[in-house]
Write a protein that binds this DNA or RNA. Structure first.
Lengths: 218, 218, 218, 218
DNA sequence: TATGAATGAGACTTCATTCAT
DNA sequence: TATGAATGAAGTCTCATTCAT
């Protein structure tokens, strides 16, 4: 009776088929990242991922042998790129350790925590049980380097007499926790519980830096 | 015609069934909590839950109309019980605000963070997207009361001149974040990455209190 | 508007569900044998097998973990039962070797070649490439024992001077070939090409015996 | 707008393409014969066929409208060529009928049974159910002419008093069965069960002729 | 003519849910 | 109340076929 969807003709269909092969994996990874972060591995359907990337179900399997391989690729692709290199520049920092720490926190949010790639952190927290070897890899490639950098920053402060002596690894956990928390909150409860104070993330970052520096001052 | 299996002696069977029938829902909820926390909602099979509770798949549906209802019951059952009442006693605390804050952190870990019920926090972080109304309820029933208590504690310190003036809601987030983080870490990466410093949780709690109090001191 | 299928009420539905568990595997194996023989492994759909056994698709997987396992069960179940034991009694035969040979041929057709189990022979011929280990097992369990028995029969005839000396293993192949051929023909071309002379199989068996005995007479 | 990839030098590509375009169908048929014989129709993927023929999947569909058409072409192409013409010369044979029969068997193996084209026999046995009209055609074009020739040979022997009177069509089946069996065995169990006595096929042929002639002698 | 990226129907398999016992 | 066999919708993955280049 009524035409099912009169807007659909096959012109866009044709256009879609023509798109270049090299862009596909990236588009699929981007779509998969968003959906895996939003719904978890098990609750995400490959057809959704394909649809969000603008391709059909079958096309996804042209590039990734299985849903699991897609997941692993999502993690590996996004993890190695963003976080580590963004922070590595801080190694050459010259100046007060308190400024270095504050700079670390700012950069972390700007270059990672506030970007879609931060979804990885939530993803690994959720799926670590199902992908143990991937969790280990994530620890080695992402978590440990970040923590190591932070340990060097804190230790530098102590060595230069700017920070009081503390248990460095534990302090690092206290530095990291609110960052991770901000990400997780934004990606989960943020959707439905808008009254959390995440609308000005940098203000929270600054307060965190403030509290930490006071807490570390001799 | 011929009786299906008259030889089967169902006397011991009956004994087992009647053993503790009013305990069933509790056993099922306990099993479901553990599995939902470990694997998430979608990846947990109701048959597993039933098996862990020592009953058959069909029995589970006698007590819970669906997997979703089971999940909601798990959250509601565990949430209302543990956290809020455990902390409410602190409202009558008399003494230094720094001691009050430290006491809060200790109790939080002992009465909630270190118990199986803490899995709820991880669970809600993961599944909030799928159960928005449940997430709201969790916010109202669990998160907001805890935060409100903490706001009162911090405000008390400021009012009494023990703490410097700060943005109270944001500080509360900084207080809570490491607690949530400890729970999440223990329940996820803890499985596979044992070198995190979670073996002495109270030491981290004490350091956290220490840093916070220094950070809040005028 | 109009009821979808008014003839369907749920009485037979109920009846079906009630059927005894022990009968299921047998019914499924029987259905699977017929379909695998008719269409081969790849072209047979599990849903067809289930439908022919009067159950749903899911039920099949209650009893067989996968389509491959179903196939293996079909082969193993039917192979060991029928052929070998049927022929083993001939070992004690007393009398002329020509009668023994003739008796072998008759029994082979009556107890195996003419029954549904003979489909196994066609099945293994077709699927040996896909299930090599199963093919080996079939050789060891079914083919070799039969050939060994035939070798003993021919050798007995030679030893007693009733048969002329011949290459025994090769003669065994010549004895077996028409039998296998009769089975294969009946199950394949028989469907569509009715003018082959399979309507009186025993007449062909008798002629075969006749030709063989003449061919073996000194 | 912008050319997709102008940097790609497609000159050698062109050379390969034009190399032997009229040879394509033949190469595809050859590849398809081998794979259909090895794995059956359903389990053979057109991509495999194309790859074995050294072309892409799309090219295959330039020459054959569908997988089914490819299959039919394989059968028709190979069937009409090899067998019938090879045997037709025997019609003019002058000499003893036993020699004629022996010669038939030898030629059959040399010109058909031992060649890749013999795979057709296995193929038709397996797929006759799925391609009934093809099976009929095969009967008419291949099986019937061969059987007719054999019937003439046997009848000639009887008429000339060289063979005893027998049921001619049935004897023809007994003549053919070991031949078909040799082919089938070689192409299936031969892969995995090397202890069958197919390493000297002509010795089996000779023994078969020997047995037949003795069996037919008055 | 040849390609190979893209499609989507259809296969196998899982699992929440039902129901006769 | 408890069971567990049975169901079938829904998911992952395959592969014959199409089509723009």
């Amino acid at each position: 009776m009524q035409p099912a969807s009169p807007a659909l003709d096959d012109a866009p269909e044709r256009a879609r088929r023509t798109r270049r092969k090299e862009a596909r994996p990236g588009e699929l990874l981007e779509a998969a990242l968003a959906l895996f972060v939003e719904k978890g591995f098990a609750a995400t359907r490959v057809e959704e991922v394909a649809a969000r990337a603008g391709v059909s179900k079958g096309t996804l399997f042209l590039y990734f042998a299985s849903k699991e391989e897609l997941f692993k690729a999502v993690v590996r692709e996004n993890a190695s790129r963003h976080l580590t290199e963004a922070l590595r520049e801080l190694d050459g920092f010259a100046g007060a350790s308190s400024d270095l720490l504050r700079e670390f926190l700012r950069r972390w949010w700007l270059l990672y925590g506030g970007t879609p790639a931060a979804g990885l952190t939530k993803l690994m927290l959720i799926e670590a049980t199902h992908f143990p070897e991937l969790a280990h890899w994530f620890q080695d490639e992402v978590v440990q380097p970040s923590h190591a950098l932070l340990r060097r920053i804190v230790q530098r402060g102590i060595d230069r007499g700017e920070f009081r002596p503390v248990d460095v690894p534990r302090v690092v956990h206290l530095i990291v926790a609110p960052l991770v928390q901000m990400v997780t909150w934004r990606l989960t409860l943020g959707h439905c519980c808008p009254y959390t104070h995440e609308d000005q993330p940098m203000a929270l970052i600054e307060l965190h830096a403030d509290m930490l520096i006071r807490g570390l001052t001799p």
